[in-house]
Design a protein around this nucleic acid. Sequence first.
RNA 1: GUGGAUGUAGCUCAAUGGCGGAGCACCGGACUGUGGCUCCGGGGGCUGUGGGUUCGAAUCCCAUCAUCCACCCCA
Length: 453
Amino acid sequence: MEYKAPRGTRDILPDEMHLWHKVEDIVRLVCERAGYGEIRTPIFEYTELFERGIGQVTDIVEKEMYTFLDKAKRSITLRPEGTASVVRAFLEHKLYARPQPTKFYYIGPMFRYERPQSGRYRQFWQFGVEALGSQDPAMDVEVIGILIEIYRQLGLGGFEVQLNTIGCPECRPRYRDELRSYLGGRAGELCEDCRRRLVRNPLRLLDCKEPGCQRAIDEVPPIFEYLCDECREHFEGVKALLSALGVSFVINPRIVRGLDYYTKTVFEVVHSELGAQDVLGAGGRYDGLAGECGGPPTPGVGFAAGIDRAIQVLSAGAGAGEAGDAESRPGDAGAPGPDVYIAPIGREAKAEALKLAFALRQGAGEETPGAGGLKVETDFMGRSLKAQMKYANKLGARQVVILGDEELHRGVALLRDMSTGDQEEVPITDIVKRLSTFGRAEAATVQEATGCR
RNA sequence: GUGGAUGUAGCUCAAUGGCGGAGCACCGGACUGUGGCUCCGGGGGCUGUGGGUUCGAAUCCCAUCAUCCACCCCA
């Protein structure tokens, strides 16, 4: 094969699309009910937006961005995350002039140039929410609550919510200085990276996994003792409200996050089944970002969650049961088979089959377009009747309409129930009415049984 | 950017320097118009790619690309 999908990218085939739809449907449902509106921003932005927003010294900006010059020689970057774009759109459209808070959600692909591994792609999909305009701890808690509510509705359990605070421009410098003086004296015990971090961004040192650094870090006092009153109060508020909401969480003072814009609350949702890249979703508060982007100072809080990783967990846990025969079936293996397969025999019957297929798909004179329509397939391969029956069976068709020349001339067709094998002769003019009724009743029970869409 | 493992049919894997196979899947047939079970047959391969060693390479060596896993970092 001459062409392959570029490194770190992949095709998501119809076989597994039902899981993606399920995730997207639940994200939309949970977010909409909480008053979050969907926003779609460009997939690329001017590079400066990410440099300013995410921070110059972060790994993402320093080495993971897909950046190129367009034909007008402007520097363009494929978005590595969603928050900067959402804040940009919020400011550009002056949405701060409307009643606050402004609550968004988004679903879409992100791009980072990294070495692929388990749960990490160069194009990956995220859903996320951003709530702008409120500095209330309750806003942080709604955002966290939405994330775990989405997981709950997906039936995805076994994760852990980890919470931390990283202060604000008021109090963080005090802690940073404290870290510098504490660890500066022990620089010899630190790894090379951390000696560099000590100068540029001492907080990042806290999540280093080198044993030497760990030992040094263990003796550093946690940030909690250095928080200003406002940050301390906010953190206490978040913890209390999370508990009140019944969300269990653990405090992890090592969470720092890789993006510069975070203030106060930071959190991660980790899952043990994910391997080394164990973060399912993460986020935090970013009260300085809007101001940094040149807009009126506007507090914000949000999260981003990996859809690829959610699906990785979901398909590891559940799908094993029906994967066997589903794999051999064409199309979306998670979707139900056709309600009807139409098997024409001969040229004349073929035209009739196509007409009948479209008629059945439309449904029988419903007011709502598409309502009462059936999932209908027919022959496009010139198969013999026998081969068509085999094919219909593989598709999982529940009824087959057999249209032979002989019957066609008499204005009838054979209607065969594939589960019982019962077969009867029906006037062609009655088929639409007859099958549409059948389809509506059955479709409801199928939906209940599969539990999705 | 660093390290390790792996690349053979659509999929899962054999062939251990000497004619590239199997199972499943796909297509067809077993009463000239009836599925599931069974049986029979068929199509499919530049052995990731490019060099090298050898009389001879899927097999040994080098390079390269890709995948997987880990580091780094992150969702």
